[in-house]
């Protein structure tokens, strides 16, 4: 997937934040599994780090790319509007794919609970970010992607953490349904964005 060129320093910082959050999360999940103590509050907080740090960080990075003057410069430099739209949705699609793979892994391991609940928050974040991207590609304003891509993931992270800590679990079928629904939202937004962005004055 071609990514719209952007500041390498900013990209490094974003990826660094995501990598640290993901590493902490994976370590926490591994510990939870090995000890079989799903009630451990500290480990749960670590496990939900990607939703608290990585998802908003990625959304901020996306939002910084969505600037009409920068898009205008890129268009004048020969980068097509279609490429730009695909680039905006690249992260959403990558997250969807990652969750689909993790669901498949969970299904194979028959360990339900942790991933499904986390996936739900992630999927809803991806869907809300896609709506923000759609907003930019039809209006030229990245305000919605700022709001939807940052506040929604943080709110969802808190909600999913509370639900999980309270012992709420979701079945594999429910998680799969959420995945399908999110994929439908992302696909619809991407399709509408391509049409809108083609006519957008930058």
């Amino acid at each position: 997937m071609i990514l719209v060129p952007f500041s390498p320093g900013f990209d490094r910082a974003t990826l660094g934040a995501c990598a640290i959050a993901l590493a902490a999360s994976v370590s926490a999940i591994a510990l939870i599994w090995s000890r079989g103590r799903l009630e451990d509050g500290f480990l749960m907080a670590l496990a939900s780090l990607p939703y608290m740090v990585a998802v908003p960080a990625l959304s901020v990075a996306d939002s910084r790319r969505m600037h009409p003057r920068w898009s205008s410069f890129l268009v004048s430099s020969g980068i097509s509007r279609k490429t730009m739209i695909w680039s905006f949705y690249a992260r959403s699609m990558a997250v969807l794919l990652a969750i689909a793979l993790s669901l498949a892994a969970v299904s194979a391991l028959t360990r339900e609970g942790l991933f499904e609940c986390a996936s739900l928050a992630m999927l809803m974040s991806v869907a809300s970010t896609s709506v923000g991207t759609l907003w930019y590609s039809t209006s030229g304003s990245s305000m919605a992607s700022d709001v939807l891509g940052i506040s929604v993931p943080i709110a969802l992270a808190v909600v999913s953490y509370i639900c999980f800590a309270d012992g709420l679990r979701m079945g594999w079928n429910g998680a799969l349904a959420c995945l399908m629904a999110s994929a439908a939202v992302v696909a619809s937004c991407a399709w509408l964005s391509t049409r809108g962005f083609r006519r957008l004055d930058l």
Binding site: S7, G9, F10, R64, H67, R69, W70, F73
Partner: peptide
């Protein structure tokens, strides 16, 4: 200037 203001 169209370049991102945070870019060095």
């Amino acid at each position: 200037c169209p370049y991102p203001p945070t870019m060095r």
